[in-house]
Design a binder for these strands. Structure first.
Length: 444
RNA sequence: GGAGACGUGGCCGAGAGGUCGAAGGCACUCCCCUGCUAAGGGAGCAUACGCGCUAAAACGCGUAUCGAGGGUUCGAAUCCCUCCGUCUCCGCCA
């Protein structure tokens, strides 16, 4: 069906995401830290596999060495015109054992890697231990939720009444979890993208990039969306060729820019900002956020990505999070910063801050950005390295964060900036992007 | 889409079944000489993994890797198959 595309190929090829040396030398410590995020390692299976691997690998390599030695002899003898039958017989005797050893070792390594591929990143020491969302810890709050003197409407109400939001058409065209926006709402949506990109490039030192929205499997493995989260992705079959996948986030194409690359030390830090649509099947989200634009199959996002030297990644994590917060502050949207607990973090993250914006209609804070430091976890898979001060290749650290999710930002603006007549006041920083318009979507 | 060529280390580039992990050049590091908007000489310089030795390195030995995967062979960068990618020409196209 996919021609010569073989899923098992990736199990072989991909290096595990945790440092294999660390696992071997400090299994206890690794197990303990993984346990804090609800991942239990089977010690006995691991050590048993590891023991067998050692002896088998040593034996295989020994046999290979013998074969190589004898083969060289054959070459030498032949060039002198001497008889090689004896050596040929000797090497033939090795063959059966060598082939068996190689096959077993291969099978073992496949099994080993399959286990390793399921291990998530180790959480940073500063991450609170917890089992789920309720254990996340609020770090800070910014802004004061506005007090309304009229009954607040949510964005769906506001948009549909004003004829700017049309879910019925979207459902007809595609289905549930899509939106059609019209007129000044569509323009506001576009304005937000421009505003975010301009701010990050002009004020925060990012370079804007444009990237493919259809990516291959290798890229999804590189950033950790595969193999575990295939059901969240939209897959695009291509006959016999390897399928494409629609990107779930710009993180995938942008971070994969440095896959298999050895960067010059001077190239770091690499700070990239990218606007893309994002596509998510939302397979596990049936029934959640079915109203409105909060959870869509297709949405726009401006993504911040940093590729940095390992010693700078924690500093960069704070900085990148501030860059995302700056957008909320310029828009004067109240928000809070949460640090995700061990049980709620993504697979590849060492630490994640979520930014949550105030939504007056829901009387709650909702996620609008997620900023993570992956340390070397992604880089190890990506084989993304730089030449360190000793001129040796060393894994980089990767980070990313939404700066911000555009659709949710639009929701936050219309809800927070709504007026009694259903119109929306445009935040000052956006007016230049709206042709100077101050209010939109009034009843007339 | 059709026809052809090609893919070798940080870069360029030899290599055509046997002491090839890979000549030579550039870049880089160290040393010597010299002396100042530079040149010459010498040495070193791929990555991953395993084993040994270490406090840890360095180091030593081994294995694998010449776009990727598989095959032929005692032995593959070299031969065969498949895939991926690049370039040239033709066709088509926003």
């Amino acid at each position: 069906m996919f021609g010569h595309f073989r899923p098992e190929f990736y199990v072989h090829r991909q290096t595990p995401m945790l440092d294999i040396q660390l696992l071997r030398s400090q299994l206890d410590r690794v197990a303990e830290r993984l346990a804090s995020r609800g991942k239990v390692i089977d010690f006995s299976e691991f050590t048993a596999l590891e023991t067998e691997r050692k002896t088998l690998q040593a034996r295989t390599q020994e046999l290979q060495s013998q074969r190589n030695l004898l083969s060289k002899q054959i070459g030498m003898l032949k060039s002198k015109g001497e008889d090689v039958a004896g050596v040929m017989a000797e090497v033939a005797a090795l063959k059966a054992e060598l082939e068996a050893a190689e096959a077993r070792l291969n099978a073992l390594l496949t099994q080993f890697n399959a286990i390793l591929a399921t291990l998530p990143n180790l959480p940073h020491e500063s991450v609170p231990v917890g089992s789920g969302e309720h254990d996340n810890v609020e770090i800070k709050r910014w802004g004061t939720p506005r007090v309304f003197e009229f009954a607040v409407r949510d964005h769906v109400d506001l948009g549909e009444r004003a004829g700017r939001l049309d879910f019925a058409s979207a459902a007809k065209i595609s289905g549930a979890r899509f939106a059609v926006m019209k007129g000044d709402w569509a323009r506001l949506h576009r304005a937000l993208i421009q505003f975010m990109l301009d701010t990050h490039t002009a004020e925060h030192g990012y370079t804007e990039v444009y990237v493919p929205y259809l990516v291959n499997r290798d890229s999804l493995f590189g950033t950790g969306q595969l193999p575990k989260f295939e059901e969240d992705l939209f897959k695009v079959p291509r006959g016999d060729a390897e399928p494409f996948y629609l990107i779930p986030t710009a993180e995938v194409p942008v971070t994969n820019i440095v896959r298999d690359a050895i960067l010059a030390a001077e190239a770091l830090p690499l700070k990239l900002v990218c606007h893309t649509p994002c596509f998510r099947s939302e397979a596990g989200a049936a029934g959640r956020d079915t109203r409105g634009m909060i959870r869509q199959h297709q949405f726009e996002k401006v993504e911040l990505v940093q590729i940095v030297r390992p010693e700078h990644s924690w500093e960069a994590h704070e900085e990148l999070t501030r860059h995302a917060e700056a957008i909320l502050e310029k828009l004067d949207l109240p928000y809070r910063r949460m640090v995700l607990c061990t049980g709620d973090m993504g697979f590849a993250a060492a630490k994640t801050y979520d930014l949550e914006v105030w939504l007056p209609a829901q009387q709650t804070y909702r996620e609008i950005s997620s900023c993570s430091n992956f340390e070397a976890f992604q880089a190890r898979r990506l084989q993304a390295r730089f030449r360190n001060d000793k001129q040796k290749p060393e894994l980089v650290h990767t980070l990313n964060g939404s700066g911000l999710a555009v659709g949710r930002t639009l929701v936050a603006i219309v809800e927070n900036y709504q007026n009694a007549d259903g119109s929306i006041t445009i935040p000052e920083v956006l007016r230049p992007y709206m042709g100077g318009v101050v209010r939109i979507a009034s009843a007339t």
